[in-house]
Design a protein around this nucleic acid. Sequence first.
DNA 1: GCAATTGCATGATTT
DNA 2: AAAATCATGCAATTG
Length: 406
Amino acid sequence: MGGDGRPSDGGGGGHPHQFQYQALLAAVHTQNPNNTLPFPLPPLNGPGADAPPTNSVARQPPTPRGFTDWSASTSAFTSLAVQSPPSSNATNAYHYSLSPCYAFWTHYMLNKNAYSYYPAPNQEHTHPFYHDNNQAKDLGSVPSFGFESFNTASLAPNMSAHMPPMEGPLSVKEPEIPEDVPARVVRIKDEMETRNGGELKFETLDTLPELKQDHESRATVSNTLYLHIRFTVHISVLHWVSAQLVHHYRKLIAKWQMKDGKLVREIQLRRNITSHNEHAIFLFCVHVNIQKFNSGEYQVILRKELTKSDVANVGRIVLPKKDAEASLPPLCERDPVILQMDDMVLPVTWKFKYRFWPNNKSRMYILDSTTEFVKTHGLQAGDAIVIYKNPVPGKYIVRGEKATNH
DNA sequence: GCAATTGCATGATTT
DNA sequence: AAAATCATGCAATTG
């Protein structure tokens, strides 16, 4: 396993699960040639998030700050999550004092994701989602999640549509450490609680434990960021979360345990301190995505395990006929249909050509122009593409899912 | 003419 | 056993 014949595209590393940040960045540049993003992009081949450890972290370029160079700490997320007003449109949601880039990023992401649930100020230990949570959801089919959901590499295509959002924000408290401290160790403890939909679906939020946070930090002479995260998440999210963690961090120590009928994953991460910004981005993505998973906003409509020919350089992916016909727009004519799919992780909208081939008396459904997507996410045979419905009509959300067994 | 892309057929595999 | 589905090779087409 691991990268066989793949050319090691820029982003360096050698670690098979390393996110290719230069490739990601290149894709963002490609997809936004006129820089329509509301935040400045860092230059290509800039200071990479995965750069080897440097002993002098002190001198960081003041501007531009962007995708890989957001030196603001993750406390921005804390303030975002805790102080944001409950608002259904994000246009007036920015009164807090984030660094400009964070504000841009979060603003962009929140708008992009139509992400509208916020804890009210001063309510960080209550359950802000409690009030209008349960009635609006469809209570029709109740998927039950067994443990095999994460043993197999499948993020089962039945997201619970009526799972409540997580009880608390992903509140990573970042201690106040000046950015130019050359080396340090940071310990972050973080706990996210969501209910485990299968077993606890009728439990009221009152009975669930409150969000706990405690954090400690100290500076030592080291370039390593130590991170302790404790996730208690819905089982359908676990696969995604752990896959993301594996991709983002060189070293991952994780163990599963059951606690109060819920599945808890304890994670210890070690990573170079220069990747602090990457870490922050990642945590924010996890935060947003978990909320969206739990609110039922993500619903899988198609999942395809990629074959060799899917990831070969022809740039087309054969889609399973049943799912394609069920959930993608009907193809009457031979003309391809352009499908716009927001990347689940990146601020990128992919435009795929969706078409079919006549095949015997049937059809084969093809997703075309997928080369960049596959390259950007470093997808190989055995990985998967997952397509979600998008609240925006006619659009979709797409995710590259790396295989977890290695 | 060539490289890249597109369209189709065939054989393998699954239902 | 037959039919359906799909992975893949290659021919045809395009730029």
